[in-house]
């Protein structure tokens, strides 16, 4: 059964968003490390939605977390009504960027890099006027 919860589109929501994702991860029986990785991934994408999708565009709106626990996985979908934005379309830092010293670093792209690296599956679609960022964490079989 899909569960749905909405949050106001500002950075004050991030704390309660992570707490909620943590609760769902616990219900799904995820271990500590994948739970942290999922919280981090959801936090990163939600931050982009809030800062760029909403605030930069002068849009005041909620975003919604849809989640479902199946036998195989915990599925989390972030839905927002900002302009279409595909996080996978931007260029990710490559190995050359990641070995640069701090003073030569460009600030950006790390959040999406951590997202994609942290979850088992990440996908994006724009559907019915909404951005849908989908995260899948597989549940280890016992």
């Amino acid at each position: 059964m899909m569960e749905s919860k909405s949050f106001p589109g500002n950075v004050d929501s991030l704390d309660s968003l992570r707490e909620y994702v943590g609760e769902r991860a616990q219900q799904a029986g995820l271990a500590k490390k994948p739970t942290y990785a999922l919280k981090l991934a959801v936090d990163e994408i939600a931050t982009n939605i809030i800062l760029y999708g909403y605030q930069e565009a002068g849009l005041e709106a909620d975003f919604t977390v849809l989640s479902e626990i199946t036998e195989q996985a915990l599925i989390v979908i972030l839905e927002d009504i900002a302009a279409p934005f595909d996080p996978l379309a931007r260029e990710l830092p490559d190995s050359g960027d990641l070995t640069k010293s701090l003073e030569d670093r460009e600030i950006g792209g790390l959040g999406i890099y951590l997202t994609i690296n942290g979850v088992d599956e990440f996908s994006y679609e724009y559907l019915n006027g909404k951005n849908r960022n989908k995260f899948v964490m597989k549940i280890a079989s016992t």
């Binding site: 992570r18 942290y36 919280k39 981090l40 931050t47 701090l102 003073e103 670093r105 600030i107 790390l110």
Partner: peptide, 24 residues
């Protein structure tokens, strides 16, 4: 207990702002 890329960006910012000789 938690650090997102926003925290990493402040680390990068520190080095760029204070200078390359700064040891973190």
């Amino acid at each position: 207990s938690f650090m997102s890329s926003a925290g990493l960006r402040v680390l990068i910012y520190s080095k760029q702002k204070i200078g390359p000789k700064l040891a973190i």
